[in-house]
Simulated scan of single mutants.
Amino acid sequence: MEFVTEKLIYISLFILIIHTIETLAYAVRLSGARVGLIASALSLFNIMVIVSRMANMLQQPFTGSLVDTAPSSNTLSFLEHQYRVIIGASTIGTLVGIILLPTFVALFSRAIIHLSQQGGSVPSLFKTIFTLDYIKRGLNQMHFPNRTYLKNFSLAHIPKRLFLINMLVTSIYTVGVLSALYAALLAPDRNNTVIMSSGLINGIATILLVVFVDPKISVMADDVINKRGNYLTLRNASLMMVTSRLLGTLLAQLLFIPGAEYIAWFTQFIV
């Protein structure tokens, strides 16, 4: 039991890192629009995406092994508790990302400018930002969201449908794999089919994200650079999106079991 608890802590830390980075992704367009270098911002952020992907690769085998090490009695309730802790870690990670958002925008804006000045050389950028002087200046930029940051925040011009879709997509992403693993226990006669179906669930979420969410925010960022929109509107949209993301991780707690039951039911038509 102690081994499982320790393993759960490691998994939760990986999940926290993943969701923190994915939440900070909303700051990338803010930083890029702020300095007029969207493409450079996205390119630089890919480095953080690599960290997120590595954390995701590392946690997946450990998450799957929770099933193998679960007790033979009360297996479902035991795993439900474990998985709900993991989902809770995604909420904490999203909250950490929201808290770091203003600091990340400030630091990332400076990093984008340095990357541009150094001809796109990431090694040269790292050599600059990891100097003691630069780190001290970076620490001075750290600040948490406050009333001033939220001043003039309004949802008046933000599509409510975008808010709801992003919340739904986040919840599906959060529980897709976990629900599939849990569903494998509900339908043990087709557990391999059930586990592999998580890709189908996450694929639907990806389509919703690419078709309905990303283009809207990208166009807003382009409008700021091309003087057709204002930075405040983009910031309001980004704050709305991270809020909907946070609510999406909470919604995931409600969708976890129904999602597992749906996957178990759906796979009977595949086998």
Rank of each mutant, 00 (worst) to 15 (best):
K160Q: 15
G138P: 04
V194C: 04
I38Q: 01
L58Q: 03
G97P: 01
L255Q: 05
P61T: 07
F130P: 01
L8T: 07
L24H: 08
R228Y: 00
M196F: 10
T233I: 13
P145Y: 09
V28T: 15
L164N: 07
D222N: 06
P215F: 05
G119T: 07
G203Q: 01
F108G: 03
M220F: 09
N192K: 11
F108A: 01
S238Q: 14
G64T: 10
S116A: 15
Y182I: 13
H19E: 14
I270W: 13
L247H: 02
P159E: 13
Y83D: 04
R137F: 01
G259P: 01
L155Y: 09
L209F: 04
E261K: 12
K160V: 12
L164H: 06
I129T: 06
I165Q: 02
T128G: 03
F130D: 00
G203A: 05
P159Y: 10
K136H: 05
G229H: 02
D133C: 00
M167Y: 09
I17N: 05
N230G: 12
F256L: 10
I21N: 14
G176D: 08
F269R: 11
N56Y: 15
Y134K: 01
T94K: 03
A25L: 14
I87M: 05
Y182Q: 15
I165M: 05
F62G: 13
S72H: 14
I47L: 10
L66Y: 09
H114F: 14
F108T: 03
S109Q: 11
P71V: 06
D133E: 11
L208D: 00
N202T: 10
L37M: 12
H81M: 12
V28M: 12
T23E: 15
A184M: 12
S154T: 08
N230V: 09
D214A: 07
I270A: 06
R190F: 15
N140A: 02
I204A: 09
R190C: 13
F104Y: 01
D133A: 02
T233L: 15
T193W: 02
N46V: 11
T206A: 06
L254D: 06
T23R: 04
T243G: 09
Y83I: 08
W265E: 10
Q82P: 04
S197R: 08
D223L: 13
A27C: 14
L100F: 10
A264R: 05
L200S: 14
A205C: 05
L178R: 02
